[in-house]
Design a protein around this nucleic acid. Structure first.
Lengths: 383, 383
DNA sequence: TTGAAAGCGCTACCAG
DNA sequence: CTGGTAGCGCTTTCAA
């Protein structure tokens, strides 16, 4: 059985799929040549043979076996994408961009959903790593890794420490240092030749695509100030939500630049959801919103919830009280009045992530996706 | 080199990843035993050895190589999902369901986006098949495969013929019989042991999860008739859009059951988009909507566009003219007035698809996802 | 330019 | 219950 040329080929045939072996035989060449002709990088195959092989492949309807190629080559032509929730338009837009760019590069996307759990995210990365993807993209994780209460001011320092500690024994790390374990995991992967890209998460030693939340909010504030607004309220999410924090910071700075200060009494912390926006608006309306001309909610869904709440409380959004949001989700133009917002090109962010991953040099790179203020009827100019 | 026990093991070590080989050595057992202990189905390994192996694996931070397992076993623990567009809430909801169920079953999801092109869909399926996934889920393809103009009445006949013709030389088939080629491709895959599930596409010889568009529309019509409406208009998409066709059919039947007939003059064909709804409503308002009490748009996005158009034309939705949609997308409750619609549990549809795929018997099965009418302020009761 | 053959990491069959 | 050992389908030296 070690030197019997009459190989028991039927195996492959019986299983149904055509292998490179079959193609080679059909073309009358060695399987090495067939391999080179079909997938070899160098063009060191006589043209005639090459076409014979291609013909045979076509005739037999041959399809390469990615897994076999993967095990032979050591990596898979895939990009692993981890999102918080596919059904969330925020993530699905990013996913769309990533997918599009990946396909253009001939890579298939494998997607995993982390929910909102960092723990789950870590597990996923571990699993995905096993697949030896060419690149891993982590999108979202809207919640900060550095818990506001425990982390020192400089996130970077923590990362560094955690990173060097984790590799030794990732699973020894308690549930507490999920972030460190994640970083360690990713660094090992990167060290083994993988590319890591984060979308909208900073402070990590990887390629990153950030959204210009701060700048967008800053410009929005100035635009609103320019439209004549002076007395603002802000609906924000918890301190631990990085996105919210940045937007509030940018907005506040923008107001300040316009010579306006924000009254702390009107900065309301609530859930980062439609319900949260509704609730905050309800409370504000209840205690009397007379002193407020306009509210800035850190996300459109919150803003939309707020508009409904105001309406329920007898205030007409856009007339009695102006409202502005952030994200410029599709329904921003469907609500009444149309919502002023800051457009965030999420899809581009996804594409940009792939660009970084594919073209990237050895050093962690970073690009920022810029945002654009869109004024609509929910914030009519005051004069 | 054929009998040299001092194997040049460094190779694996140098590449960075720990292999089963290493684990076996560390545990002092054969790699066969290690394999069994870690991934073997039967528990025919002495408990002590099993734990030694597990310990070694943990210590070395071993991760199995899915591709290697795949090539050895002949299939991958993945489900390939083809959607029209991830960013579309319709598809992303289905994708969420599929992903969730797949993960619960220990399968990873690889996602591909077909855009609206059947041609692209075919290519994708070809590629995906190469990956030897355990199951392939085709979601959406809202456009009919059977072009209304060219297809015989009985779709099944066409499929059968095309299916037997395709295998021989799939790529010889012109652009015209994309559908046949697709069916052929999927049938081969299925014959080789793969599971195929379609979501919301009927008439194909595969497991299918359908949405009860007809029934939902039927019930909606009766509910609206019950609320006192008599003079209806319908905004529909092109004949070739199956979903639209079914919804209109169900709606019409529902009206008929309530003794109401639909005036053809008020059945307007338009794009299956927000813009389409806007346009249709604009036209209707222009030529005078006095004769119409309520319009049913075959999708929420169309309905929402229509509401805006009515408002722009000086008609107050919910007062001057009622509006109802279909899908119950999130923003249905954010618009003013809140939109009456038919809830479609897309996420469940996705999960159901996986259930079919995993538990399915040999014969093509089919389940229907039921829909639920949700009456809101956009269609106040008339009395 | 080509073919033989040595793997890639893992599974599964076959003797013990 | 265990170890040896053929593969799985493909890539990639290494000589020829």
């Amino acid at each position: 059985m070690d030197e019997a040329p009459p190989a028991p080929v039927p195996a492959a045939d019986a299983r149904g799929s055509v292998t490179l072996h079959d193609v080679a035989r059909e073309a009358g060449v060695s399987i090495a040549t067939a391999s080179r002709a079909l997938n070899g990088s160098a063009r060191n195959v006589r043209t005639e043979n090459a076409s014979r092989v291609r013909a045979a492949a076509a005739k037999l309807d041959y399809r390469p076996h990615p897994s076999a190629q993967a095990v032979a080559r050591g990596s898979t032509p895939t990009v692993a994408l981890v999102v918080g929730d596919v059904a969330d338009p925020y993530f699905s837009a990013i996913a769309a961009g990533v997918t599009q760019a990946a396909e253009a590069a001939g890579l298939v996307v494998t997607m995993a959903v982390a929910g909102r759990s960092p723990q789950r995210e870590l597990e996923l990365v571990r699993t995905l790593r096993g697949q030896r993807p060419r690149v891993i993209v982590l999108a979202g994780t809207r919640i900060d890794g550095t818990t506001a209460s425990t982390a020192p001011k400089d996130g970077r320092a923590v990362d560094g420490a955690a990173a060097s500690a984790a590799p030794g024994d990732g699973r020894a790390v308690g549930g507490t240092d999920t972030r460190g374990a994640l970083v360690g995991e990713l660094e090992e992967y990167q060290a083994a030749g993988g590319r890591v890209v984060m979308v909208s998460q900073r402070d990590l030693p990887f390629d990153t695509v950030t959204i210009d939340n701060t700048g967008g909010a800053h410009r929005l504030a100035r635009a609103l100030a320019g439209a004549g607004y002076r007395r603002f309220a802000v609906f924000r999410a918890s301190e631990s939500v990085r996105t919210s924090r940045d937007r509030v910071a940018g907005f506040t700075a923008g107001l300040r630049a316009a010579g306006i200060s924000l009254d702390d009494r009107f900065v309301i912390e609530t859930e980062f959801t439609r319900g949260g926006g509704y609730e905050a608006a309800r409370k504000l309306a209840e205690r009397g919103a007379d002193e407020v001309e306009i509210v800035f909610a850190v996300s459109d869904v919150m803003a939309i919830g707020a508009m409904t709440a105001f309406r329920d409380a007898g205030l007409v959004p856009g007339e009695d009280i102006a409202v502005a949001g952030f994200d410029d989700i599709d329904s921003a133009i469907d609500v009444t009045p149309a919502l002023t917002s800051v457009a965030v090109p999420l899809r581009e962010a996804g594409q940009e992530a792939m660009r970084l991953a594919l073209g990237g040099g050895p050093a962690p790179d970073a690009v920022q996706i810029s945002t654009r203020v869109v004024l609509r009827e929910s914030t009519p100019a005051r004069r």
